[in-house]
Computed example of a mutant assay.
Amino acid sequence: MIKLFDHTEEVIKGPSNNNENAFNYYHKSDRKDMAVIRKVLEEWFFNYPNKEKKELKNRFKKDMDSAFYELFLHELFSSLNFEIEIHPKLKDSSKRPDFLIQKKDFSAYVEAKICYDKSESEMAFERRRNEFYDSLNKTRIKGFLLRIAELEFKTTKQPRTKELISKIETEISLLDPEAITSQMEKYGFEGSPFINYENDDFKILIQPMPLIKSKRDKISKNPIGMFPFETFWGGGENSLRESILKKAKRYGKFDIPYLICVNALGKKTSGKIDIENVIWGSLQYTYSTNPDNRDGRMTRAMDGVFYNSGKPKLKNVSGVLVTKVFPSNIPNANYWLFEHPFAENKMDFSRLNLVYSYVKENQIISLEGNDFDKIFGISKNWLE
């Protein structure tokens, strides 16, 4: 019988590297919370159709995010008492959606999509940066951790760190942790000296952060203690919108309901406000030009995925489920389910027993349903 996690004698202690293969870390980590997560994923994998397990396991090794999400959705709809067909055939297309779910007189196609809030170039930059951090973590120092105050890549080449590591090790060996601790107590970060390094490929500004006395005699395994603050303007609405549009146009028209499921993993897609702006249209403040009755109120612009520029859009889509679920937050993950008010194939969302929103008489109404902890029977404090 195929298992998701094979027996292994290899063990990874502590946190993962920045560019660590996610499946490899989940498989080999000795952390107790990882053992709990592995157990749940293995149980879910056992419930997955046998003929599909090999392909899904291979995808876990290459792209854990998308493979996990498909396993999650399979377990979700199974827990909601649906019969599930993996990659069902379509009459007029060689393409296959991810699932066909059925229950008595109810049936719908389901498609899964991962949304990262990042372009290909941004993801390539992140991989290059993570590999840089993993290389820099090979620095061998005692008494300090490293705070990376600034980092700038000048080219698209993968930077070499040998000279930088040598410089850090040399300069930190000359520092007194007690003296710097005293300075930082007076002046904060400014009380620690800076280590500057620059070459043709990158420049970096680093500060040594003194450890407490009991930790100073051992070489730090992962000496990077603080990374540069990551800031950005705006939300992840564009990437979420593009993800929905891409899946909406993939198959054309169906003769039964079609549900698009998007797992929004990016940091920019913060939650309900961003997601509802994409679905229903951006929030805007409107008022009358009548000075005696301004009638100021919040309304929705006509730029949502269901209704845009004065016309219903994506009518082949019956609804959209947006989640923010990771293997580590399964019972606590948030989700948002939306019924398309103009769908050609209406879907009875009450049959899902999930929280969902719909439109009635120009009002957005939300109905109650179960959270993931109740659906999966997993306690919210499962990792404790």
Rank of each mutant, 00 (worst) to 15 (best):
E190S: 13
E190G: 12
G191Q: 06
G191P: 01
G191N: 02
S192T: 00
P193N: 07
F194M: 05
F194S: 11
F194A: 08
I195T: 06
N196G: 06
N196W: 02
N196T: 02
Y197C: 03
Y197D: 03
Y197A: 11
E198Y: 00
E198P: 03
N199H: 05
N199Y: 08
D200F: 13
D200P: 03
D200Q: 10
D200G: 07
D200I: 04
D201T: 00
D201Y: 10
F202E: 06
F202C: 01
I204E: 03
I204C: 06
L205T: 05
L205H: 02
L205V: 14
L205N: 04
I206N: 05
I206D: 03
Q207W: 10
Q207I: 03
Q207Y: 02
Q207P: 00
Q207A: 14
Q207T: 06
P208K: 08
P208A: 09
P208N: 08
M209Y: 13
M209G: 02
P210H: 07
P210Q: 04
P210R: 05
P210T: 08
P210D: 12
L211W: 03
L211K: 02
L211Y: 06
L211F: 11
I212G: 07
I212D: 04
I212V: 13
I212P: 04
K213G: 07
K213A: 12
K213L: 10
K213H: 09
K213M: 02
K213T: 11
S214N: 08
K215H: 09
K215R: 09
R216I: 06
R216S: 05
R216N: 08
D217R: 14
D217I: 13
D217M: 10
D217G: 08
K218F: 09
K218V: 12
K218D: 09
I219W: 03
I219Y: 15
I219M: 11
S220K: 10
S220W: 10
S220V: 15
K221G: 09
K221F: 12
N222K: 14
N222P: 02
N222C: 02
P223R: 11
I224D: 01
I224F: 12
I224C: 14
I224A: 12
I224R: 10
G225M: 08
G225V: 05
M226K: 13
M226H: 14
M226F: 15
P228T: 10
P228Y: 05
P228H: 15
F229K: 14
F229E: 11
E230A: 12
E230C: 07
E230K: 10
T231E: 14
F232Q: 01
F232L: 05
